[in-house]
Design a binder for these strands. Structure first.
Lengths: 244, 244
DNA sequence: TATTATATATTTGTATCACAAATTATCTAA
DNA sequence: TTAGATAATTTGTGATACAAATATATAATA
């Protein structure tokens, strides 16, 4: 049962084969966890060599559709939610303009206040513990260790999102949180004139007030404190741009 | 100048090579548009065969980091924003549970009213024209052509997002809009009892009112009409689940 | 000189063959 | 029945050759 490969010429053999195999997967013909035909079988079906099959499988593997196990076979992958945003991470990382960062901050302004509000209602004690620990870590973080500060900051917001209990929001916001690390790079490059104890105290105070609201299940309060916090984040970022 | 390959054994040769080459790219050592060494050169540098290099390059290509041009070479890719969400599309497509869809609808409730509000202030006449055309298309869409209706619906919301002028929001919301097509599948599977002219009229009326608000640059009105619309969307989806 | 056409060289894609390495299936012995 | 050894299967890598697309160099022409 040899299969047809529509020859759109200009398209490589391995690419046409990749599309064929992808169809098998996306259509559900081969279920998740199921085993694909062996390279040999594909070779016969498509009447090509392994050198045409292997790049197709490798590409599908890199895209997360299949998992290749040496000595065993190729299996349809259960997609890992944590991996699907990696291309976005890369994109943000490589187009790291101030415009982009401002857009991400604006998106945070859209999403995070509401998220904090929902988190206040749905949070578990585990979330509270994690947030409390986070506040301590921030308190112990050296004033000039901006990388560590940013990482703790990221963790805080990521945890609040998690507490809101919407995995879709989590998934899509994570790449944005990862950018927090980049917020203060201009500051660091410029000088330490903006790295003050007051700025740190203000940030910590806002984190604390957000935490308190979430702890008290006060959604409205959490909403406004978060909005205030992100607004301050934007102001600080703009300030750091201007002093450059 | 042969390069070191730390042998974490268990990890394949081609995978270690892929990481090495990825470093060259992410570090910026080879700039965007720059040309990578040829397969031959890599073979010499790493003292391996082409069969170890080619899968590494193919994987990087599938992940969007490089572009392989037959007869020419391998080049560092300028990442295409439209492609970075493809893994998310696939993930949503393959984990198509009612829970997931509800979560996406909740995210829409978080984001879209604000987006509509901003769109009302920033929209261009091109956006208005596109939206107006969209309303006509919906008006001419047969009542029972649910696929077409969903596609027009998706286009409407996508355009409103675009009008808001935040590419990050656009990028991250697009995978969610693509799911609109799936909303009414349960309905279709069940029966046509929920496919009524009234429901269609109501939806069109809301689209129209959102459009009007955006046209009049009335952000507040756009906000509430959009909120109403998404709320209705959720109600309809829940209804369709219950009748199943 | 500048441009075009031709020829040559370079580079990636595919075909074979061979073997290594990991896994899976089979068989044997206790 | 179970444990261990053996064989078979399957993907990974090496090597060589050639096809196909592109890039470079050369030569011819205006």
């Amino acid at each position: 049962m040899e299969k047809e490969l529509q020859k759109d010429n200009k398209e490589l053999l391995s690419q046409r084969i990749e599309k064929q195999i992808e169809k098998l997967i996306r259509s559900g013909e081969i279920p998740v966890g199921g085993k694909l035909p062996t390279e040999q079988q594909f070779c016969e079906q498509f009447s090509v060599s392994r050198n045409a099959i292997r790049p197709a499988l490798k590409s599908l593997s890199a895209r997360g559709l299949v998992k290749i196990v040496k000595g065993s076979g190729v299996y349809v992958n259960e997609i890992d939610p944590r991996s699907v945003t990696e291309p976005i991470d890369l994109f943000f990382e490589m187009s790291n303009t101030s415009d982009l960062i401002l857009h991400t901050i604006h998106m945070r302004q859209l999403v995070e206040p509401e998220v904090a509000s929902v988190a206040a209602l749905k949070r578990t004690t585990e979330h509270l513990n994690k947030l409390e620990l986070n506040l301590q870590l921030m308190n112990n973080c050296p004033l000039f260790d901006l990388d560590k500060e940013a990482e703790i900051d990221r963790e805080f917001h990521s945890t609040v999102s998690d507490a809101a209990g919407n995995p879709v929001v989590n998934l899509l916001m994570e790449p944005i949180y990862k950018l927090i690390t980049k917020y203060k790079l201009p500051v660091f490059a410029k000088s330490e004139q903006l790295v003050t104890q007051e700025a740190r105290d203000l940030m910590m105070h806002l984190h604390q007030s957000i935490f308190d609201a979430i702890k008290e299940k006060d959604g409205r309060e959490a909403f406004f404190r978060m909005r205030e916090h992100i607004k301050l984040t934007e102001v600080n970022y703009l300030k750091s741009l201007n002093t450059q």
